[in-house]
Amino acid sequence: MVKLSIIAPLVYIAVLVGTLAVFSSLYRKRKANKAASLEPWFGPHYPRDIYLTLLHQENPKVPDNILKAALVRRATEDIRRVVTIRQAKGSLQQLLQKGSIGDDLWTRFTVAEAEIEEELKDVAMEANGFSSEWAASIFQSANEIVQATRVRERAAEVAEQAATERAWWNEKRERASRELLGENNSDEDGVLVESSGSRGAARPGAATRGKGKSAS
């Protein structure tokens, strides 16, 4: 037994340290894998992929103008992403502190942030490749394009809204005139005398009638 008593603690320490080392290396590897396999923040970056595909296409070689247009599209999408990231940062930090979101989300965010910064630098370099000093103005142009797209989308809604409102308004006036006729004739199937809907034609008479109905 005395023989064992010298080796035993050494063996013990060796086993202990060994297990800890194995565990820590496995854990770190697992963590690294997890970080790499985290779902990206944004979805696939189509303009970027298109641009790079076109850039590397050899036969036939894609003319420069198309490449420039593709680069502008890429810059547009990047501007959108950068704005989202910048706006989200403060709120994300707040939420993280409060515990309303998980740490994973924050990791994904930082990864996305780093990615987009690199992407911007890349685009600037490519822009410079086509024409010197374009790097400065490409993002400004991209910004304007993003804003303009929003304006156009809003403008497109106007016609739709006008149509829905017009449909409702016509229906209401029909209903009102039916009621009026119903009162006059005490007949449930009142025939509609006036045609509904004055699309753009000036009918001052319609106005007073409409006004009268709206008060009932």
């Binding site: 006008a162 409102e165 017009r166 000036a202």
Partner: peptide
Amino acid sequence: SINNWPEALADVNA
């Protein structure tokens, strides 16, 4: 001015 309230509403919203 021609009492097209629905269209006017859509335009004024924009």
